[in-house]
C-alpha cells in the first residue's frame, strides 16, 4: 500500500509545483489545495497501512496487538483538514477581493504594495 501512496503524493506534489509556478493567483490556490492533500497523505502513510487490523484493544488486554495501524495520524489529519479548509476559504476570498480592487489575478501585475518606481525593479527583471 505504501508505494502506491508514495506515488500519489509525488504526483500531487508535481501538480502542485506546476500550478504554483503560474502567475495566476487562483491557480496558485488550487496548487495549495493539492499541496495540503499531499501533506495529509504523508501523515496518513506515517501511521502505517495494514489491512483488517483495527486499533482495538481486546477485552482483558492492556495494549493493542503489535502490528496495528496507528490511529493518531488519522486524528491529526482530521484537524489538519479543518484548518487547511478554513485557510483555503480565506485565500479564495482574498483572491476575489484582490480581483475587485486591483482588477487582475496576475501576481506580476499586482504592484500596489511595491510600486515599480520605488525599487521593485527586481520583480520586473524576473518577468523579462
Amino acid at each position: 500500500m505504501e508505494p502506491i501512496v508514495a506515488v500519489i503524493v509525488g504526483v500531487l506534489m508535481a501538480a502542485t509545483v506546476y500550478l504554483m509556478l503560474s502567475r495566476n493567483f487562483v491557480r496558485f490556490i488550487f496548487g495549495l489545495a493539492l499541496l495540503s492533500h499531499a501533506a495529509n497523505l504523508v501523515i496518513f502513510a506515517s501511521g502505517g497501512m495494514t489491512r483488517g487490523r483495527p486499533p482495538l484493544i481486546a477485552p482483558g488486554a492492556s495494549a493493542p496487538p503489535p502490528d496495528i495501524s496507528n490511529a493518531v495520524p488519522q486524528a491529526l489529519i482530521l484537524t489538519a483538514i479543518v484548518i487547511s479548509f478554513s485557510l483555503l476559504t480565506f485565500a479564495l476570498v482574498l483572491a476575489f477581493r484582490t480581483y475587485q480592487e486591483l482588477e487582475t489575478v496576475d501576481t506580476d501585475r499586482m504592484r500596489a504594495a511595491e510600486p515599480t518606481s520605488a525599487g521593485a525593479d527586481a520583480g520586473q527583471r524576473a518577468v523579462g
Partner: peptide, 30 residues
C-alpha cells in the same frame, strides 16, 4: 489595494510554510 496585494504575498508563502510544517510533523511521527 496595497494591503490586499501585500496579503496575497504573505498568504501564499505562509500557507506553503504551514503545509510543509505539517508534512514535516507527519514524517517525524513516522
Amino acid at each position: 489595494p496595497a494591503q490586499l496585494d501585500g496579503a496575497v504575498r504573505y498568504a501564499a508563502l505562509s500557507l506553503i510554510a504551514t503545509t510543509l510544517l505539517l508534512s514535516g510533523i507527519g514524517l517525524l511521527y513516522g
